[in-house]
């Protein structure tokens, strides 16, 4: 026999997913963020179709339209060799997003696994992993990236490697902290008593409790990876011309400041737009899933 009062409390009118969506929908900043992220992604994917002059993405030269200010024909103006900046910006998003996918695709699993190991096993494992993480964190990121790209010659892949080598540390620390807190919950011990293996406890019991924090972190990270990638190519350590990269475009455009201001400003705004989108989305997800990152 189950008490009536016990039954009553399971009455529900919304699932937890619906509740989370409700919170998300009520948050205008999150909605704006999501819209921006979707628009950036769409622009990047469909760049060849959407761009007004796809040839501008390559080593195209049109001296007749050099330094053309923003107009109905050239929305963001043209650059020093007459290429359409709007086209180059949306092709630039392709580079930026592939950088994000590449970096986070390696850094997140690596960082998460190390964090899980350190938090779950504790003791000596924790000491070795976490102190190594601390050492990596102590290296100034830009100096590290400079060193790596200097050795490996500047290219997109090498920039990716440089950023990845620094990025996993933050995920390790985040996951370590969450796992450490979760370890005091009885369900971990209950799983041990049930005879579960270490792998089961780490990946099936603990990892699901980290997922919301990881997704928020990824969303916030995406913006910073874009920024970091742009900074590297601004310094000439990233993608080579004529590949359209936002950082390189700002760098080249800045030579023509102030009279041809759009050449540096437009790609700069494009970076701002993407980062803003990812950060707003990340904040929205954080509020929705109620996690600390």
């Amino acid at each position: 026999m189950i008490e009536l009062s016990e039954q009553a409390s399971t009455e529900r009118f919304m699932t937890s997913r619906q509740m989370a969506w409700f919170r998300f929908r009520r948050n205008p900043a999150a909605l704006i963020g999501a819209t921006i992220v979707i628009s950036v992604t769409m622009l990047a994917i469909f760049a060849p179709i959407l761009s007004p002059s796809p040839q501008s993405a390559g080593s195209f030269v049109d001296f007749a339209h050099r330094h053309h200010p923003p107009s109905a024909e050239f929305w963001f103006g043209t650059d020093n060799v007459g290429r359409d900046i709007f086209t180059r910006v949306i092709f630039g998003y392709r580079i930026s997003l592939s950088l994000v996918v590449g970096v986070l695709g390696f850094a997140v699993p690596f960082g998460v696994i190390l964090g899980l190991l350190a938090g779950y096993f504790g003791g000596r494992t924790e000491f070795i992993i976490m102190r190594f993480t601390d050492v990596m964190l102590a290296i100034p990121p830009l100096a590290m990236a400079l060193a790596i790209t200097a050795v490996l010659s500047p290219s997109l892949v090498n920039a990716m490697i440089a950023i990845t080598m620094l990025w996993w540390t933050w995920h390790t620390r985040l996951i370590f902290r969450i796992v450490k807190a979760q370890m005091s919950e009885d369900y971990v011990e209950a799983a041990k008593v049930a005879g579960a293996s270490h792998a089961h406890i780490m990946f099936k019991e603990l990892l699901p409790n980290c997922i919301s924090a990881i997704s928020v972190k990824i969303s916030l990270d995406a913006g910073f990876v874009i920024l970091f990638g742009a900074a590297l190519s601004f310094l000439g350590l990233g993608v080579h011309p004529p590949t359209p990269d936002l950082g390189t475009m700002v760098s080249t455009g800045s030579e023509y400041l102030p009279e041809f201001w759009w050449e540096a400003l437009m790609p700069g705004l494009a970076i701002l737009y993407a980062i803003l989108g990812f950060n707003l989305l990340g904040d929205g997800l954080r509020d929705m899933m109620d996690v600390e990152v």
Binding site: E185, D186, Y187, E189, A190, A191, K204, P208, N209
Partner: peptide, 13 residues
């Protein structure tokens, strides 16, 4: 069987 089922059952499972 633990004291607090809120803690002994994994919330994500």
């Amino acid at each position: 069987v633990y004291q607090n089922p809120g803690s002994s059952l994994n919330p994500k499972r």
